[in-house]
Design a protein around this nucleic acid. Structure first.
Lengths: 154, 154
DNA sequence: CATTTTTCCCCATGATATCCCATTTCATCC
DNA sequence: GGATGAAATGGGATATCATGGGGAAAAATG
């Protein structure tokens, strides 16, 4: 599965296209699907993205609940139902759906922030505000994070 | 098995046809049957759809219950007995059976919502109402959803 | 078996998204 | 510091998708 690191500035051109940072493209280059999947973050006012394999994993995890349970429907509708499979054009650009751009409050500029298995796309203002809080939290909680060897890789 | 993501608006034309969103058609393009299977959702007032392979999986699951149990008959009658195999016309349209349209309360416009292995077709009003509840539920239960590596792929 | 009705195939048109190429910018190496 | 290659940007051309409707084949009906 892909690994997204570091951060890069992005910009919407006048045709609605956004160049995905080259290192993020390289992270998904060896996959069946040449592109990324984006959806509104369930916890922040930002777009979240990952590779298709992770979304398939999520779909399988949801499906392994009772297929007709209320939780199943709720998760699937709020995440999978708002996901967009975005293919790269030959130059590595995608067109971000209007709904996601509006959700994240993006107008022109944006930041791609790598989070490992996923990444987020933030409006510059919201990222700045978020980071002030995130740094405090990370400093306080850093002692709790355990590195756990992976038995099953994905 | 097919993966259905995102959401798309649909519409019944004056000949009773509905264009299935191109990405949903692509999701089932490599299957034996060029089309989808639709049935009334057992839990919501919406049409539910999937590819033929999933219905076969469901039929097998039901069959592995006691063949003469009450549950067996109930599932089979309410889902399999009300399923319709809908083939695409050359333009990718299907004609939704009147019974399903009436069940979902659809009159003209509708929304196709991807749920991963399946999708739902909602009347706009009912989808809006459902989503208000679904988002609450998803937020409350989000911590419970673990990404689980898949032992058995489908 | 004839007639009516329905279904499905086929084509035309318009809108949209994608591809493709030209140009510019940036980073790296010599 | 100049040269080279990769990456980014912009915009015209093209293919794909959506939509509407005529007409033939199949099915249902009397």
């Amino acid at each position: 599965m892909a690994l997204f690191l570091s951060r890069y500035e992005g910009r919407i051109d006048r045709k609605g296209r956004v160049l995905v940072p080259a290192p993020f493209r390289a992270a998904v280059a060896d996959q069946r699907f040449g592109g990324v999947v984006c959806y509104p973050s369930p916890v922040e006012l930002a777009i979240e993205g990952c590779d298709l394999a992770r979304i398939e994993l999520l779909a399988n995890s949801i499906d392994s609940l009772n297929p007709f349970s209320a939780e199943n429907g709720a998760f699937a509708t709020t995440i999978l139902g708002k996901s967009h499979q975005l293919a790269f054009d030959p130059e590595g650009r995608v067109s971000l759906p209007e709904a996601l751009v509006a959700f994240a409050g993006i107008a022109g500029a944006m930041w791609f922030v790598g989070l490992g298995k996923t990444f987020r796309i933030w409006s510059p203002e919201r990222l700045a505000a978020y980071e002030r809080e995130a740094e405090k939290l990370a400093r306080n909680e850093a002692g709790r994070l355990a590195l756990r060897p992976q038995g099953v890789a994905t």
